[in-house]
């Protein structure tokens, strides 16, 4: 990350706080503010520590708080939604049968993050708190919401808003909420992570899509999201607007291709330029749409 400061040999122990409950964890964080960070699985924090990234001196553990570990279907009005506690591991996001059966995009994308050993420790909350985690594009196209607590109390909002606003600063993510999955027969979804190696590699481009056609073969619902590298994952609103409501035969892939190039603004990094990432993203999205029409 460009904003991080690196020093040599700063690997001394951190100061650990073990709150008895959620309220105590939040109070401690508000008290210590930027001098402390929450820690759950800790895989990213350990990685940065070993790399010499300067991090807050205090860590507030969350992994022992059972209220953050649940995973359940809940009725909300006439809809059913899935509430995933922020401590649920990426391995469980992949293997949980409820997720596999109803939100398979999350299950598939979780398998693309890191390695089995990391997925056993890393959590869905941590992946979101990272801000550029590989799960985020999949969660964005599933219209995920998050519940978090910060100085302003507990709030629930769209994941996309949470990522953009200052809300994420000092926030403790408690839950990820997935709305009822579409039962449309003509639904489709896909997820791609492109890196420099087939598995276990930071992504250059991460792309996700979800949608369904109505009976008149019009695209009734479409969500597209891109992320990767240090780029903040985003939905492609203009591309979605272009596709929304179109009949299969009216979709012009060359127009979509240009729209992706214009809308996706990834940061370049030492391994891949902005223009390369744009091209990869446009190729991925267009090839997925081509399969559908």
């Amino acid at each position: 990350m460009g904003t991080e400061t690196y020093v040599l040999n700063q690997k001394e122990a951190m100061i650990l706080w073990e709150p008895d409950n959620l309220e105590e964890a939040i109070r401690k964080k508000l008290q210590l503010a930027d001098e402390a960070m929450y820690i759950a699985g800790g895989t990213l924090i350990q990685l940065k520590k070993e790399q010499g990234v300067i991090q807050p001196e205090h860590i507030i553990r969350l992994d022992h708080l059972p209220e953050l570990a649940s995973l359940q279907m809940v009725e909300e009005g006439d809809q059913v939604q899935l509430e995933i506690g922020s401590l649920v591991s990426l391995a469980d996001c992949h293997s949980n049968q409820l997720i596999k059966d109803n939100w398979c995009l999350l299950s598939e994308s979780a398998l693309q993050v890191a390695s089995p050993a990391i997925r056993n420790r890393a959590t869905i909350g941590g992946n979101i708190a990272y801000g550029i985690g590989d799960l985020i594009p999949a969660l964005l196209v599933l219209d995920a919401k998050v519940t978090w607590v910060n100085a302003n109390g507990q709030q629930t909002g769209e994941l996309s808003s949470f990522l953009k606003k200052d809300a994420s600063k000092n926030a403790l993510i408690t839950m990820v909420i997935l709305p009822e999955s579409s039962q449309a027969t003509k639904a489709f979804n896909w997820y791609h992570k492109v890196g420099r190696r087939e598995a276990f590699i930071p992504s250059l481009v991460t792309a996700a899509g979800f949608g369904y056609w109505n009976e008149d073969l019009e695209l009734e619902h479409i969500r597209l999201a891109l992320g990767g590298g240090a780029s903040l994952p985003n939905r492609l609103i203009e591309c979605e607007e272009y596709l929304q409501g179109k009949r299969m035969e009216d979709i012009r892939l060359e127009v979509l291709y240009e729209l992706v190039l214009a809308e996706f603004q990834p940061a370049s990094d030492p391994f891949a330029s902005t223009s390369y990432k744009k091209k990869v993203a446009a190729n991925l999205l267009v090839s997925e749409m081509e399969k559908l029409i």
């Binding site: 073990e18 350990q46 990685l47 391995a91 050993a117 056993n120 420790r121």
Partner: peptide, 12 residues
Amino acid sequence: KLVNACMVMAYQ
């Protein structure tokens, strides 16, 4: 469960 021992702290 498989873990990396370099990623796990004693308290965990």
